[in-house]
Design a protein around this nucleic acid. Structure first.
Lengths: 257, 257
DNA sequence: GTAATAGTGTCTATAAGACATTATCCC
DNA sequence: GGGATAATGTCTTATAGACACTATTAC
């Protein structure tokens, strides 16, 4: 079949058309819990995903990704943006397309083709949800909890798994780490964020590599005040640490060079 | 709106549903043209994309990506696989998902949400198309021709541009180069293929880097015969060159290490 | 002072980058 | 032998990787 086929004839039931095209969002957040130690230290961070317990058929009682159906007047991305806004009550948060989930029978309601997104939001943005719609149960789970311990609706386990892999890859190959950090941060914080999302990541000489290898120079820049003096912070350590921020530059990686 | 909304009620016209969900394929091929020189040399390679000239409304006369509508009994990926098979007459060819294109009004026929794929096929696979359906005009264009010189249907220019960027990135970060090469190949061939797809790629010491840096050791392996002797080929050069093949290993790249 | 984390010194092995040189074939 | 491409030698500089060491703060 080629695209010359005319689906406007679907009104005459010549073709079956989908029953709905939702956008589902894997909402990640990096929780930050202060440690109650005698001395200054980095908080404990954990990667979590927000899920909603379904109340009605289908998959009643199971945990599912927040989502909503796309309207004719908007693109799928618009729908996801709108949904994210409705869930968090604020604009903002990093939203990215993940993929399409269209296996026949994936949704007992009919021919439902779902578009998955993942969002990186701040923890406080999720509190709105709990207040706004207290009729629905909302949960924040670690990724391994979600994947291994919960009963998930539809093919949402697969989606969460795909999103997790995607975010891990992006954490290493792009600068999305900035979504989980304040504008200015220390290198220990950055390292901790990377390790929280990608536990396998180990780099003993992290500070030195970032600061003194030319090929990585462009990624970060030192924060300086008006006088050009380096700015540091002792929020998380006894000895103050230099603050950095991301530049706009993302290097193009290659396995051949 | 949350996913509790029930789209099965769309039969009662409570919700508008899409009029069709096609899969469109950006079919890339790397053409290979022998040079008529006195001495052995690499062929001229060019990255091309296959397009079809539309005969009927909408966008009649314009060039468009091959594609077809998805059926209820198959996933989008299935539909693309089927379409690729119909276009080329053979199974095979690398097929990968690119993204969803859903801007309102992108297709005058109605609410049509298109899913773009890109395929890497061999040149001979495209000849079938010309023979099979000679009623439709088929064209092979370089990417810059397609982007700059042709009048393209729908949002297909955007799709081709996205696919081009994607394939360039993948050429450097994955081993898709193998899709454009025979099982066994020389390093000059590999280098040429990379450069054809990513003209900016320059690496004077390419051979040495591949063969003598530990971090890249895993990507390729030397071809050896039964006796363990290295196998070389003089197909494209006077002095025979060592043959290589890709291993299953694709390194995980990181901008921080 | 001590504890704690930030950051540097130092040394070795490996890799990058730029050329020059040699090797192996075709003609 | 001459021409062409493959592959290695060589030299300089940069980076990786491992640890020991110094620096700056809190308490």
């Amino acid at each position: 079949m080629t695209q010359n086929a005319d689906p406007s004839q679907s009104t005459t039931k010549r073709y079956r058309t989908p029953d709905g095209v939702p956008a589902d969002i894997v909402m990640f957040t990096l929780t930050k819990r202060e440690r109650k130690t005698v001395t200054k230290t980095l908080p404990i961070r954990e990667l979590k995903v927000m899920l909603i317990r379904r109340k009605s058929w289908p998959c009643a009682g199971m945990w599912a990704l927040p989502g909503g159906f796309c309207r004719e007047s908007e693109s799928i991305y618009d729908a996801a943006t709108r949904e994210l806004k409705e869930e968090t009550g604020v604009d903002g948060g990093h939203l990215e397309y993940l993929g399409v989930y269209s296996d026949p029978g994936r949704d007992p309601r009919g021919w439902i083709i779902s578009h998955a997104f993942y969002a990186l939001v701040e923890e406080w943005m999720l509190e709105h949800r709990q207040a706004a719609d207290d009729a629905e149960e909302v949960g924040l789970f670690t990724v391994s909890q979600a994947l291994d311990e919960l009963e998930l609706a539809f093919d949402h386990r697969r989606i969460i798994l795909d999103a997790y892999r995607q975010i891990q890859q992006q954490m290493l190959q792009t600068t999305i780490a900035k979504q989980f950090l304040p504008e200015e941060f220390t290198l220990s914080e950055l390292y901790q964020v990377i390790q929280t999302v990608v536990p396998e990541f180990k780099e003993p000489n992290f500070i030195r590599k970032i600061t003194s290898t030319r090929s990585r120079q462009g990624i970060l820049e030192e924060v300086r005040n008006e006088d050009g003096k380096p700015v540091s912070s002792n929020q998380y350590s006894q000895r103050p640490a230099q603050l950095y921020r991301f530049t706009d530059h993302t290097p193009l990686l290659s396995m051949y060079t």
